[in-house]
Design a protein around this nucleic acid. Structure first.
Lengths: 182, 182
DNA sequence: GACGTTGTTTATTGGTCGTTACAGAAGGAA
DNA sequence: TTCCTTCTGTAACGACCAATAAACAACGTC
């Protein structure tokens, strides 16, 4: 029993919703707006994705899919300093990607604290490994560097949303790397 | 003709509104919520402050009153490096002030791009002065440092809102200062 | 063809939003 | 007192919000 087939592209609608949440945040996007942009009626959207929170979660999953891959790839560099350098450079590029909203969906959304914490945990873990391998002086120093990297990352997302171009963000990343312990 | 006197403390209500906007942002605060917390009816609030946007502007003016003073005081240090160091330290303390919402009303509010740009202009101006005085290599270098400082400042506000304590922010500020050109 | 399932359409629900009309209350001035 | 002005309380406005009920349409299967 297959029933009547869906008349719209579910993935395409999810991409539209992701983009809307990325640009204006959870509270800034109404279900009616997504429906209007997608050209579908509300019951179709509710049937396909569930309520607004469920739609938001699926949009976030789509957003973070590629993002987590990039993060792990960057952090996998043999030297921690190079890993952070790559991380910050990737972030500058992602936050200013042409054809996409500026900034970061995760960094800009107040309700995604948990997901931000996960990213921060990954960064801190990578830097503690660097401390264990002798690349940093101590675990305490590693946590300090981690707090600094988290700060720069969040700040770059904020600057991008305020209209900073890619070079400004790359400048910030370049200067941040200077702070690496000698 | 004085008319009937006001029965509530206008400044106290404005402080409540400022705190609410600080915690939850413009869209996260409803006029009804402010009225309930203040114990007044909507027409009283509208008569005293105008519409929601006017209330928000007055709350912002109250918030930035002390903030602009602090910024100018910090930036007035003779050495630019010391000025930035003081600025970041003050920010860490302000963003985690006990009894106040974490983070920054201006940094957290999407619609206050203009006011953030003003702060950034002040920082950039201070650093260009440093370049003119020989403390930095060039105006281009000054702009790079300015982008970096803006990033750290915005990032510290974001971390504070996510629950980072004062020491984490001070760690970040301390490491940021390390990036200062030798 | 009829049946069961699923998607679409229209219209509506109860709720909250920002804002205001209106009538009454509290002050000073005549 | 009577007037004028300003504030307060109640009640309501239209607009938008997220979410759904009900009727109809399109598919595979029988």
């Amino acid at each position: 029993m297959t029933g009547r087939p869906r008349t719209f592209d579910k993935d395409a609608v999810l991409r539209m919703a992701m983009r809307a949440f990325w640009e204006r945040g959870y509270d800034g996007v109404s279900v009616a707006q997504v429906c209007a942009e997608a050209g579908i009626a509300a019951p179709s959207l509710y049937a396909a994705f569930g309520d607004k929170e469920a739609l938001f979660e699926q949009a976030c999953a789509l957003y973070t899919e590629h993002l987590d891959e990039d993060l792990e790839r960057d952090l996998s560099a043999p030297a921690a300093r190079a890993a952070i350098e790559r991380l910050l450079r990737s972030a500058a590029e992602h936050f200013t990607a042409p054809g996409q909203p500026p900034g970061c969906l995760v960094m800009g959304e107040p309700r995604l604290t948990e997901r931000r914490d996960r990213t921060r945990d990954m960064i801190r873990a990578r830097l503690r490994r660097a401390a264990a391998e002798g690349e940093l002086a101590s675990a305490a120093e590693a946590d300090g560097v981690a707090a600094f990297v988290d700060t720069v990352l969040s700040g770059m997302a904020a600057l991008a949303r305020d209209g900073a171009d890619r070079n400004r963000l790359l400048d910030a990343a370049r200067f941040a790397i200077r702070a690496w312990p000698a």
